[in-house]
Design a binder for these strands. Structure first.
Length: 289
DNA sequence: CACTTGACCTGTCCGC
DNA sequence: TGCGGACAGGTCAAGT
């Protein structure tokens, strides 16, 4: 799934839904999805209360009253869905079919609360994980130490943006955009969308992109990801938010998964190619090598 | 170091 | 219908 806007949407939903709930039990069918010692789970997870939910890059953090944190990465197909037994069978609930079906065969972790509600971590491809870590140790995780700045923070400027790319001067601009140590949170959808917005071909080398083009790319990265947060993220395949609802950014996408359709700017047919090992969508007229 | 490729998994879709 | 292969929102380890 999940790039910055999707993880942000899940975080916002969880903040509304699970703060102050008390954890009664935790189950998992897959050690790689929940690689925590039974002793730690018993000692620091069971019986704890949810105090806060945070996001950094594409990582979610659920802070517990025990000074431990559930650090969660959804990778490609992860979902975190809260189900309250009171709404579970509620007629007319917009997503009662999905909600009613949980847990299902993709459920890797179940967190049960003492009021009967549950949080399900579903992950078809099993790339994602839920790790229980002392809160004070979270900033020391290898990923947290090397990840780049948050591009939507108000004090993150175009000058900062350009500076971060200097270390990847010989890489393709799309590979650098996807590199989480350059800036945090951009994935395949918003890389394609922002490069189209800035009229930059994804295969161009970072060192050959002008300052004016970088300024436009900076604006586009912030524009597409802010718009997507407003739309509840992109549901390309599996993604749903904390209530099981799909996001609608794909209705506003300009190139992503729109091969064969006209470019919204010039009506040239959008084509799909492979760049940096990833499926990539461009307008061959607007985005020249 | 900088950069690219393959691996991790399951499911779906497309061509034969 | 079945089967093989390519492909899917991400990140790492290992390779050049």
């Amino acid at each position: 799934m999940p790039e910055l806007p999707e993880v942000e949407t899940v975080k916002n939903g969880l903040k509304r839904l699970i703060i102050e709930r008390k954890i009664k039990f935790a189950d998992s069918d897959n050690p790689k999805s929940f690689p925590n010692a039974a002793y730690d789970v018993e000692q620091f997870l069971i019986g704890s209360t949810i105090k806060d939910v945070r996001r950094r890059a594409k990582v979610l953090m659920i802070d517990l009253s025990t000074e431990y944190t559930l650090v969660i990465h959804l990778k490609m197909t992860g979902q975190l869905v809260f189900v309250d037994k009171a709404t579970r069978f509620g007629a007319g609930h917009p997503n009662d079919s999905l909600i009613d079906s949980l847990p299902d065969k993709s459920t890797r972790v179940t967190i049960g609360f003492d009021d009967g509600s549950s949080l399900f971590f579903n992950d078809q491809r099993k790339f994602g994980w839920v790790k229980l870590i002392p809160t004070i140790e979270v900033p020391n995780l290898a990923f947290m130490k090397k990840v780049g700045p948050e591009p939507l923070e108000p004090d993150f400027t175009a000058v900062d943006f350009i500076e971060r790319f200097k270390r990847r001067a010989r890489a393709k601009i799309k590979a650098a955009l996807l590199d989480q140590t350059v800036i945090a949170g951009v994935g395949n959808i918003y890389a394609d969308e922002s490069l189209w917005g800035a009229k930059i071909h994804p295969s161009r080398l970072v060192g050959d992109v002008s300052v004016a083009e970088f300024n436009e790319l900076y604006m586009q990265v912030r524009y597409v990801m802010n718009l997507s947060i407003e739309k509840g993220g992109s549901t390309n395949r599996n993604y749903v938010d904390a209530e099981g609802k799909k996001g609608s950014y794909m209705d506003f996408a300009r190139v992503f998964r729109r091969e064969g359709l006209p470019c919204p700017r010039c009506h040239t047919e959008i084509v799909k190619l492979k760049v940096a090992g990833r499926g990539t969508h461009i307008c061959p007229h607007c985005q020249q090598i």
